[in-house]
Design a protein around this nucleic acid. Structure first.
Lengths: 204, 204
DNA sequence: GCCGCGAACTGACCATTGTCAAGTTCCGGC
DNA sequence: GCCGGAACTTGACAATGGTCAGTTCGCGGC
């Protein structure tokens, strides 16, 4: 994840695309997504500010590519949590939620960027595919736990699960962390939330 | 809500504070929150580009004041929905959620602005007070429906309700409206979500 | 080996933005 | 009446993202 600056003297960078994405990751660990500046990222990569255009088109293109990687990591986080959990539907669904919340908690900048319709091009095909893939683990866990329900009702359960997890993550990342935490701490609140959601989603 | 431009010839506007807030509301109906420009708002109010400073300090100050009004309207929307609903706890809690979702659906720009930690000063006392007041109706509805629970468990239910409603509103406003809606439409999805949340929050 | 073609990259230019400093106009209290 | 201070204007500044004509380079064809 370390930014590889352009070798001095060289004209071509070699892998500027990767370097800019790494610079973005680095900058995002220091500042919130809205403070990102194309010029600063180019500086970090040791390159002129207009060098990103051939690779990403414009700033939005770069951020969109980064957000796409974020959705892939979000899916990975869920799958990893599910693999480590017991195989029964309730545990799997809980693990999926914990994976989602864990990613958001550990990568607040990345998560916030992904949810910003102004910074990211929501119509980008690669992004949409990654989004859909990130929604998959949750859908599978719900489907496995509710074999008796029809499609519409199952969709409603998915919306419930996704809204609950996403709302908590968004509130925690954006503003209201302390209020959510109560006196028991953020992770305890997370656990209670997941428990409540699993119960609501898998009820007969 | 119409912007009152400065009377031509006059030096003082009279109520520039109000005029700027109205201009902000107007601009927010045309463009997303991130496209707001202080200079454009001043133009709408018929005033120089730096005239906002004496009233609001800087751009954040103006947006924070507007967000504060948003939280007041959010609380009002919930109270209105609750007043129109049946008096039993489940109906009251559902009404609170519907009020929250209705406000977000009808004022997407305002809602998105309120949730943006970069545009709004989250430490502003007036804003914090309005936020707390907006969280009140939900808290009361939960408390009325769960008299048998202790404080910690009740807090967990509140977090569940708030996260669920907020997550849906945020996803719908920011990006994923169509996915949430399914084939039944957004309002149907809203209704199903609220029903699920009420059940989960008021379970014994 | 060399040559040319196209991609990668540079540097300058532009419009726009938020903030600041200094000046002007006006209201209200004395 | 006048005078202090608040409201407002004007002009300047630094920073940003986008564009565009050029320069430099890697690489495949000869």
């Amino acid at each position: 994840m370390a930014v590889t600056p352009k070798p001095p003297g060289r004209f071509h960078h070699g892998d500027l695309r990767r370097a800019l994405l790494d610079a973005l990751a680095e900058a995002l660990r220091e500042d919130p997504p809205e403070a990102l500046s194309l010029r600063d990222l180019a500086r970090r990569a040791g390159v002129a500010h207009s060098a990103a255009a051939p690779h990403f088109g414009d700033k939005r293109g770069l951020l969109t590519a980064f957000a796409t990687e974020g959705y892939q990591r979000l899916a990975t986080a869920q799958r990893a949590a599910m693999a480590a959990a017991a195989r029964d539907p309730a545990a799997q669904l809980a693990a999926s939620g914990q994976g989602y919340l864990g990613f958001a908690r550990e990568n607040p900048g990345h998560f916030r960027l992904m949810m910003r319709a102004d910074l990211v091009d929501g119509t980008n095909p690669a992004l949409c595919a990654a989004q859909a893939a990130a929604w998959q683990p949750l859908a599978e866990a719900i489907a496995a736990g509710t074999p008796h329900l029809d499609a519409a009702e199952r969709h409603a359960r998915m919306v419930l699960a996704w809204s609950g997890v996403h709302g908590f993550a968004a509130l925690a990342a954006e503003q209201a962390g302390p209020v959510l935490a109560g006196e028991a701490g953020l992770e305890a609140a997370e656990a209670a939330l997941v428990e409540g959601l699993v119960g609501a989603c898998l009820r007969p």
